[in-house]
Every structure is written in C-alpha cells, then in structure tokens.
Write a protein that binds this DNA or RNA. Structure first.
Lengths: 200, 200, 200, 200
DNA sequence: CATGAATGAGAGTTCATTCAT
DNA sequence: GATGAATGAACTCTCATTCAT
C-alpha cells in the first residue's frame, strides 16, 4: 500500500498534501492579515502553490476561509485532546488558560485566531461563514462547559461563557493596547479564579 | 434669531455640519460593515454627500476611519459624562454595564464599535490607525479605573482590564453565537460582581 | 485719477494686480512642474489667490498657460531691451549667451522655460497653445537674427537657428545629465564662436 | 518548422511577445502624447491588450515609462550598431546626422523621443525615472564621443555635447516652429561641420 | 491535474470647472 | 467681485475568478 503511495508521491505529491498546505496557510495568513486584506495570491505563496492551482482545491475565497476555520477547529481539538489526558477537570481548565497565555506571542500580535475571524465574518450577511465561525467557538464553549460540569459546578454553561469571554476580551485588549502583559495579568487572575472554585 | 439662522440654513448648511454628518455616517457604516468592506461611496451615500465631495472634508479613507474613531470616543465621552452625574462610583460602573446591555440590539449585531474596529485595524501596521484605536479603548479603561479607585479598590488598573475585557468578550460572543442572551446573562453576572465588591 | 485708483486700491487691490500675480505664478510653477503636473490650486496658492477666484481672471487652465507664455515673452523682452543698449551686435549676442549661462541655476534645474513649455505643448493638438509657444520662440529667433544681420553675416536666419538651437540643446542636456557644467562649457564655446565670426 | 511555430502561435503568443508589444507601444504613444497625457488605456489599446492585463506585465505606469526608455535605448543601439559597420568614424557621425534628418517626419512632429521624455521626466523628483532618461542620453553621448576620439579630435567629450546638443536643439525648434525644414537645414550645417574637422 | 496568463468589475483618489452666496 | 464648497468624469491600480494549454 505504501508502495503505491510512494510511486505516486515520489514525483507528484498527493493532492491532499496540497490541500492541507493551503488550509494551514490560509489559517495562518488570514490570522495575521485578516480576511479582507488577504489575497488568494498571499495564501498561494505561503503554501507554495501556483495561484492558478488553488482553485482546483478550493472553488472560492470563501471556501478557503472556511478551510481556515476548519484548521482552527482542528488545532483546538488537538489542544483539548491533550488536556483531556489530565485527570482533574480543574487542571484541564487551568491548562487551557496556560495554553492561551503561552501562545501569547502570536495571539498578542494578532489576537485569538477564531475570535478575530468571527468578528470579521460577522460583518457580512452572505455566505454563512459567520455561522461557521460561531460553530468553532461553540466547540470551545462546549468543551469548557463539560469541564465545569465535571467539576460539579452549577451553571456550567454560564461559567463557560465567562471564561471564554474573558479570553476573547483579554486577547483583544492585549492587541489594542499593544501590551503583552495584559495577557499574563489576566491569565493569572483566571488561574486564581479557577483555583478558588469549590470542588464538586 | 432662529429665523435668521433658518434663512441661512434653509439652503446652505454649515460646512462643519457636512463634516459631522460624514463622521457620524463613517462611524455607523464602518461599525456595521467593517473597514475593508466599507467603500467611500457607502459612507457618502449614508451621509447624503456626493462621492467626489467627500474628499473635500477627508483627504483619504483612513482619515474617515480616524474620524469614525473620534466619533466613537465622543459618544463614549457623552456616556461617561452622564454617568459621572451619579454620586456613587459603584453605581457609575453598574450604569456602564447597564448601558452596554441596553445597547444590546446594535452591539449584538455588530459588536462593540471600538473593539471590532481595533481588532480590524490591528491587522495593519501602516497608518497608525491601530494606535488610535487603542487610545479610544484606553479612554474607557482610564475612566473605569478611576471609578474602581474611587471605590477604594486595590489594583484598580487590573479591575478595569477585567471589566472592559469582559465587555469585549461578551460582545464578541454575542455576535459569534448570534445569541443576544449572552449579553444579558453576562451583564447580570457583572452587576452581581460589582455589587459583591466591598466598599472602601 | 490716481486718487480714484488709490481709493480703490487702498483696501481692495486692483484687479490687474491679481491678474499679474497669477500670470507670474503660472509662469514660475509651470516652469518648475510642467503643465500637466501643475494644478490650478498650485498656481492659486503661489499667487495667494483663492482657488475659486482664479476663474475670474482666467476662464480655463489653458488661459493660464497662455498667460505663462506671455509672461515668458515679457521677460524675454526685458532682456533684449537691456541688451539693445549695447552698441555692438556681437556684444549683444554675447550678452545673451552670458545671460543664459548666468541664469544657470534655475535653467539647469528646470530647463529653458519656453523650450520645455513648447516641447510639452507640442504634444497636444487642441487649443492652439503649441502655436503660441512657437511664437515666443520666434520672438527670440527674430531678435537674434537681427543681430546677425547687423553684424553683416550671411544667412542670419540660419545662424539664429544655430544659436538658439544650441541654447535649447544645452539646456536640455544640462537637465537630463543633471550636470550644470554642461551649461558653462557650451556657453564658453558659443562665446568663442561668436568672437570668431568675421565682422561685416 | 515554421508550421509548428505557427500552430503554436496561432492562438497563444509567447508571453514575452506581449511584454514587448506593450514596451513598443509605450514608447510610441508616450513619444506622441507625452507621459502625463498618456493613459494606461492608451497604451493597452495600441498594444491590443486588455487594460487589466497590462498590470500583469508592468506593475505601475512608471514601469511602463521605464520600458519605453529601454525601448528607445534599444533602438539607439540598433542604429549605432549599424553605423559601427562603417569604417570611418567621420562617416559614422555623418550617418548619425543623416539618420536624424531622415527620421524627420516623426521627430519633426513629436521631437526627439529621448529628449522630450527626459525634459518631461526632469520635472519630477520621485521615482528616479529622470535619472534613467539621462542614462539613455548618456549612451548616445558616449558613442558620439568615441567617434570623435577615433577621429583623433581633441576634447571629444565637448564635441559630443555640441553635436548631441545641436540635435536636441534642432528637434525642439523643428517642433516648436512646426517647420520641418529646420531639421534639414541644421542637418546640412552639421554635416558640413563634420566634414570641416581635420582628420587625426 | 497543473499553470501562467487573461479578464473585468470596482475601489480610491485627483482635479478642472462650476455654483451659491 | 470674492470665496468656500460642490461636482462628476477620468485615471491608476487591485484582485477574485476563469481560461487555454
């Protein structure tokens, strides 16, 4: 089986490889430049794919943006999978906050990838991309809510909103103020808050 | 006296009136559509000004965006001036939250005007508009910090970040999830939090 | 009569003063920037006349360019009048060359005012300004030809072409090469040439 | 062989062919209309290329002007290469003058392509196109200087300035006066002058 | 499948000219 | 006459999308 794959892959690369490279590049470039300021050519260049070839994998620019959202969801899944290894839900949530803060460099410069994308996509009615962005955020909310529920907290739904909202807010402020310490200060506060919650 | 004013105003309007109309329209349209998806023609139409004439008042599109920021700062100033009438700083802060929630309709649809603008402008280095957006947010932060200080709270700076961050976060989530109740639920939580703070 | 003029001029300036200022400014600014890159606003600013007021004196931009040509003709007249004081036609011609070279600073930076203007206006068929530019150059040619005739030279017409052509050529080269010494070197050569011509 | 070429060329043409067509058209149209009065659409039409496609080959209008300069330099090179076949440097110079005069039709209507271009570009500081124009003129000067040196003349540099300056001057006068005979008359004079120079 | 090239619909901006007081 | 403001046509440039090989 691998022989067949190799025989194909030795010269031409698999189609899915290009698709994936485009998806990852779309996620990165759109995160840094925003949807409107990103051209197809930007993404093509970042993915090292000829411009004319992009359309083979993604019919429209919106398809590429949707792919960027999918990629963000995938990366979120990787993170939560890793955190799910931890036995204690409180530790999982603290791990999430720690991850946010540690990613600080990029997030401090360009904000939360999903959040800024959602904010930009919300400003357009057509295409339904706004809804897609909401779904990714919902994934995060659901996971967080599950942890609060496991912790035995009342109103896990509301707590999830609070925690994720705090993350979005501190990301935005870090950016707007161009002050990375906002991220760490608010991160510490969230950790302390999580610690202060009674068990069960 | 007003007759004289009217007789003048019936045909021609003061130059600053048009400037102001453009500024307000810029603030509104940019809030709803975002900077990149807003054309000069959009703003001109909203202000009922011929496209070519816009440039008499604002040399570039960026100038118009800066004007939109100024307008948001002005509206923030109106709000805080009104709240400053209240004797108790805690009531002022609760009034702020109430204002946020009550504005819900618009904010729920398009997010916090300054916050979403800041997020979009952060993605471009040139022009310094990103810094300008930060300054408007700083105005809000400073006012909030002052209230916490008047309340005798320790770390008023940090508390301001938390409150404003929560506002930005809940605005974004309200939008992304297309769920206006997020705004009210989080608003209630913030009110309760403010009430729970010890005096002095 | 002068009283009336004064009574008018004491507060408001005479209309012709503004006209003249516009004419002079047009000549200067057009010399430096070229016709196409000069806006009415540029000339108005240089003449310290409100933009809207320019059209009182000059109905179109072309009228202003025509005025610039007239101004150049006037300045040429001043020069030749001065040179006409000299008794010897050879000295008059040498004085002309000396004047060209001494004006070097400006001409080296922007070329011969009339020549560059003629070159630019030649590229458009409409308006007849090209012909007007030719007439100014013809004024110079005629004066030079008269000197050669007074000198008793055969073919004074051809000699005039040669001398004026040399001036235009050296102005252009000085500019194109950004080398002011071209002007002085060629000027010296022309002086020597004039000296070498036999009298009568 | 040509059949194969034709079968390829019948539909698609080589990319460089379009580039070249644009370059040649730019040179022609700019020569006739001047830089400022030439629009990208003018050049596109002359080259039979859709407007939007021009930018695939030349990023800006200035790039197109630069290409026009290059084209003029190329045509100058073709001319001097041809003249270089002649054994006698004096004949080469006379051939150059003859070429100038014979081109008279076009040059009489629009002036020396490089000279008028240089004059127009000199009026703008930005972009460095002015310097580029100077370089093309320098090419001509250098070639002429070489001929004078081969002729054993003292000060070949100065003689080159004189000859090329005379060419620029007579081109300009021919235009300004709308009198093609200026070209021929001055051309004859230059030929006579070259003949009068002592050998060695 | 791959790819350079093509296309055309706007977008921002400038500016000569005109208007209204 | 004087003046700030108004107007609209034109221009340069961008870019998502499609085409032809």
């Amino acid at each position: 089986m691998s022989q067949v794959a190799d025989s194909k892959g030795s010269r031409a690369e698999t189609a899915s490889a290009k698709r994936q490279r485009l998806m990852i590049s779309a996620a990165q470039v759109v995160h840094q430049q925003g949807v409107e300021r990103t051209t197809i050519a930007d993404i093509a260049r970042a993915a090292d794919v000829p411009v004319g070839n992009v359309y083979y994998y993604y019919k429209t620019k919106d398809d590429l943006v949707a792919a960027a959202l999918t990629e963000h969801a995938r990366q979120l899944g990787l993170l939560t999978d890793r955190l799910d290894q931890l036995p204690d839900p409180r530790e999982r949530l603290k791990g999430l906050v720690a991850a946010w803060v540690s990613q600080g460099d990029l997030a401090a410069q360009y904000g939360c990838p999903t959040g800024t994308l959602a904010a930009e996509l919300d400003k357009r009615a057509e295409g339904g991309l706004d809804v897609a962005a909401g779904k990714v955020i919902r994934l995060l909310l659901d996971w967080v809510e599950r942890q609060f529920r496991d912790l035995g907290q009342p109103d896990p739904d509301g707590l999830a909103l609070t925690l994720v909202g705090a993350y979005q807010g501190m990301s935005l402020l870090t950016n707007a103020l161009r002050d990375p310490t906002v991220m760490t200060r608010e991160g510490d506060r969230l950790i302390a808050w999580l610690d202060s919650l009674p068990a069960r």
